[in-house]
Design a protein around this nucleic acid. Sequence first.
DNA 1: AATAAATCATTGACTTTTTCAACTATCCAT
DNA 2: ATGGATAGTTGAAAAAGTCAATGATTTATT
Lengths: 159, 159
Amino acid sequence: MATEADEQLDIAPDEKLMAATISQDAGFLLAKLHAAGSVLNNRALATFGLKERSYSVLALANSELEPTQREMAEFLSLDPSQIVALIDELERRGLVIRAPGKQDRRAKIVSATAEGATIFRRAETAAREAESAALAGLNGTEIAALKGLLRKALWGPAA
Amino acid sequence: MATEADEQLDIAPDEKLMAATISQDAGFLLAKLHAAGSVLNNRALATFGLKERSYSVLALANSELEPTQREMAEFLSLDPSQIVALIDELERRGLVIRAPGKQDRRAKIVSATAEGATIFRRAETAAREAESAALAGLNGTEIAALKGLLRKALWGPAA
DNA sequence: AATAAATCATTGACTTTTTCAACTATCCAT
DNA sequence: ATGGATAGTTGAAAAAGTCAATGATTTATT
């Protein structure tokens, strides 16, 4: 009987392959944790008719930063044409509006409507809970450290 | 002139949106760092006719863990049918072989051929360099800390 | 001022990836 | 021995990603 320690944890046949060298790979670890988190996140956001992508667009629209679509695309690592589709949908639902840029009328500034702000606040709460669940293995200090390292890797010490 | 500090860094119009609340979101940070790393990773692996996905399958095939396709699917967070396609390709190129499981003949154990091992070793070196580039903003200690936190989030203290 | 070059959003075509339900073969429990 | 589960495979449909072309507008050049 090779299986002796299968008492309570049916959740992790992962364990066998944890010994593979790829488990030391940052890219793999990022992908895997992101995948696990996405499931929880999307499940939580579905309540509001949102997915990770539309949620992040709505989040930027809710900031006071007056982001253009191009800035959103770059920041979210998406193609500009994907942003168009996401905003089309949010705008159709009355959650955001497009306005021409003040200095540059080619650009369009996306901002949230009152309803968009309301939905965002509620979705944000749900997303936070999902994140907590995804990072349940870490304590508060560790979560802060993880986020700090991710930000530093992305943006340097200025993050 | 709103733009005063554009001397050398044309690379980061990100900075404006860094202030958005979503920049504190673990899911967003994971996605963004993974996206940035994937570009470098895939570029490095293209030399060997590999992508991140096929590379990770090849990596598992190169372990001594005798993984089945299902175990690979679970570990890599992929659908079993995607594993089929990835292995079909690698097998066609003579880099891995399928063998029936010893206890369970439904399962198929995937292992690397000699050529698969050779290519993997070289690809591994390239992937490591890509990872270094992706995490250039962190020093060695920080990289180790980041990986440790990711592993702990995924698998708990036992990682 | 006029022209040329570049940029933003958009569209549409195309490819790739993801998701899911069926199917066969095999294993496990009764 | 039968029934129910599981591993791999196939194929179809949906979603996501990539990319080139276009009109409107801005910026640079003459």
